[in-house]
């Protein structure tokens, strides 16, 4: 699993890459933390569970990132480790893809984490979830800071 951030004129793009869609979503979440501070500075001391469901996998990525943004904002937490399990719906009439995840992190400590920016939300700009020819998954979008 890998993660990266990419340039956008006003904001920042985040991208997760992995052998599975689960890994790509976990990577995108780590890139989300990297927008705020160095993920290596965030200890995995406490955890919480996150559930999402959406009619397409790109909206599922938006929901996943926005759930993390919400938890960070309301619990004043930062996250550094993610265990993601996605169940893609195969029945076209159901269209509900689901995500169950555990996110580990710790409360924001401003002097230690030196958080650079608060994330307002995940946008549909540059939103893309898919596989390349080698089967590798990517999950990306721009986040508003």
């Amino acid at each position: 699993m890998a993660w990266q951030t990419f340039p956008h004129e006003a904001d920042i793009g985040i991208r997760g890459i992995g052998a599975t869609i689960d890994e790509a979503f976990a990577g995108a979440a780590l890139a989300l933390t990297a927008v705020i501070c160095d993920p290596a500075m965030v200890a995995a001391r406490q955890s919480l569970e996150i559930e999402c469901a959406a009619p397409d996998i790109e909206v599922l990525l938006i929901d996943w990132l926005n759930a993390l943004i919400y938890e960070m904002a309301t619990r004043k937490l930062l996250f550094s480790r993610f265990d993601v399990a996605i169940a893609l719906s195969i029945a076209p009439e159901v269209e509900d893809h689901t995500l169950h995840a555990t996110a580990w992190g710790e409360p924001i400590d401003v002097p230690r984490h030196r958080p650079a920016a608060e994330i307002k939300g995940a946008t549909f700009c540059e939103l893309d979830v898919g596989q390349d020819a080698s089967g590798q998954w990517h999950a990306q979008c721009v986040v508003d800071v």
């Binding site: 929901d63 943004i69 307002k120 939300g121 946008t123 508003d144």
Partner: peptide, 10 residues
């Protein structure tokens, strides 16, 4: 405002 934007955009 951030959450209202998130909710209604979706």
């Amino acid at each position: 405002g951030h959450q209202i934007g998130t909710d209604y955009l979706r």
